[in-house]
Design a protein around this nucleic acid. Structure first.
Lengths: 130, 130
DNA sequence: GATAATCCTTCCAGTCACTGGAAGGTCAAG
DNA sequence: CTTGACCTTCCAGTGACTGGAAGGATTATC
């Protein structure tokens, strides 16, 4: 199947699929006319990539997961460890964002936001208060 | 003051400060020997940048905020609007991350993580279940 | 059969916000 | 007077794509 069809099936832009090939994540067959020819197994790999990327795994992590995916002798402990590390990162990011949210919402609440120049948001950013 | 001192005072790497100059965020004086010479006002601007960047504003947003910062005729409504937009983005990101967290923690909980190859995490990523 | 629209190819450049490193000039201490 | 820390510029790389140009292949329409 052509890249356009594979793109539709995998939910990834053709550009991204070619990029994944560039960096060695998959290598479809080629037809006589030079077109890439994706098998259903290729599409599975692409869907795998789409899902794991959207779950926040980096491309390098996806590469590891993908190699485990195709390895019937794999140990699930490896996969679980990668997922647990990623889970901890997500938790950390949520905490950070909540902190940002607290500071910013405080500032927004205290800014009258009218035509006057006084603005506690800028004061805070400048470090003039506290 | 030299860039090293400004770096310490602003809490930004010297590399980053030079980069900010490259993209036109500030332009310190130069000494006869070619060294950059930062005033305390420059350091204030740098601290402003450090704080607003760490609060999740993009460099372009920081540029806007910085121009309002130095503008005594500014209207705080502009600043408040930028901050509110950013606040909404942060909220959206938190929701997304919580969703990711839910999916991943479910998968981790269901993966026995021993030496056997069975692994619901990979099954999920492959789209084999559900 | 000609033509137009769509799809495919490769390659180069740009994004964002830095970061690393090389090559070389300047300055303060011992 | 040399060592080492600091400064300069410039070039290249990061991550994960994305945009676009130039050109070949295929498909649909007239």
């Amino acid at each position: 199947m052509n890249i356009g069809t594979a793109s539709d099936r995998a939910g990834l832009p053709a550009k991204t699929i070619r990029y994944y090939e560039d960096i060695g994540l998959l290598a479809p067959q080629r037809l006589d006319n030079g077109y890439r020819d994706y098998s259903t197994a290729d599409v599975h790999r692409l869907r795998f990539l789409q899902r794991s990327r959207s779950l926040g795994f980096s491309v390098e992590e996806c590469r590891q997961l993908l190699s485990l995916y195709g390895d019937s002798g794999r140990e699930s402990a490896e996969v679980k460890a990668i997922a647990e590390t990623k889970l901890a990162e997500i938790e950390r990011k949520i905490v950070e964002l909540k902190g940002l949210h607290g500071v910013l919402s405080h500032l927004v609440a205290n800014c009258h936001g009218d035509g006057r120049p006084e603005c506690p948001i800028l004061d805070e950013l400048a470090g003039e208060t506290h």
